[in-house]
Design a protein around this nucleic acid. Structure first.
Lengths: 144, 144
DNA sequence: GTTGAAACAATTACGCC
DNA sequence: GGCGTAATTGTTTCAAC
């Protein structure tokens, strides 16, 4: 992980489909040299995966909300995690320290859709005793 | 945006470098047909960009924290946004409704690094009157 | 949408330092 | 271990339909 690898990562972050020859022009390396560096970074787990950023607005998800969840007892964690993993509108779930136990990042099509997500999905999980929802009005920055 | 486009998006989400020929085998379409669909989704803005998911842990960022920020007056927003955009450890910034005005998703190398981020960067911005930090203990799900 | 030819990029094998 | 060159293989692009 040297200076050149960092440059390659920066380039790939901006365009995950950039060709090795194009990257090579930036870092002054041959095509096989660039390919090998990318492969090695994948092997080491530094590069987790190549992906696409999808515009959620254009997919109909107009609402971004953060839901903080209080879980009563640790015995309900497994059921909770299963629900989280299976729900496509729950993008992120972090175990956090503080008054609440989990912080969820969610997307919804409408306020009523968010209502369903909170009432029918999150609060339906055994052990969920309290939630607090933060609605995003706009997004200033989002490095996904 | 039909059934096939959805399938293509799902495949690209899992592997942004999947070839059109490979995608074609899944959706039973020829290579130019797949390429054209991907191009059209890029033109429409549905696909924002191709990217790469980098393992933050392996990059030395062991701490994930959410910082909620209260901004005194709207006249300080521009300066605040500039700081946000320029700081690489601030991954996300959402304008939110509620007691706090902004929710920041941040990464740090260590607790002292997070301390610097809060004290020397965020609180240094004019108009920032209050912050509240949620430390992530672990991440259950993160669709980036 | 498909097919096929041309252009392009990646992979492999090899030699080099 | 890391790099470059050149041949091979595979992929995309571009036409025509």
């Amino acid at each position: 992980m040297d200076r050149i690898d960092e440059q390659i990562l920066r380039l790939l972050k901006g365009n995950g489909r950039m060709t090795s020859s194009e990257i090579g022009k930036h870092v002054h390396l041959s095509i096989p040299a660039v390919s090998e560096r990318i492969c090695k970074m994948e092997e080491r787990g530094l590069i987790e995966q190549f992906s696409v950023k999808i515009n959620r607005e254009k997919m109909g998800f107009h609402l971004l909300a953060f839901i903080m969840v209080q879980l009563e007892k640790p015995e309900h964690i497994q059921a909770f995690r299963t629900v989280i993993q299976e729900h496509e509108q729950i993008l992120e779930c972090h175990h956090i320290a503080g008054e609440y136990d989990y912080l969820l990042k969610t997307v919804s099509r409408s306020p009523s859709d968010l209502e369903r997500l909170i009432s029918d999905t999150v609060k339906q999980v055994k052990g969920v005793v309290k939630t607090s929802t933060l609605i995003a009005l706009s997004t200033v920055k989002e490095e996904r």
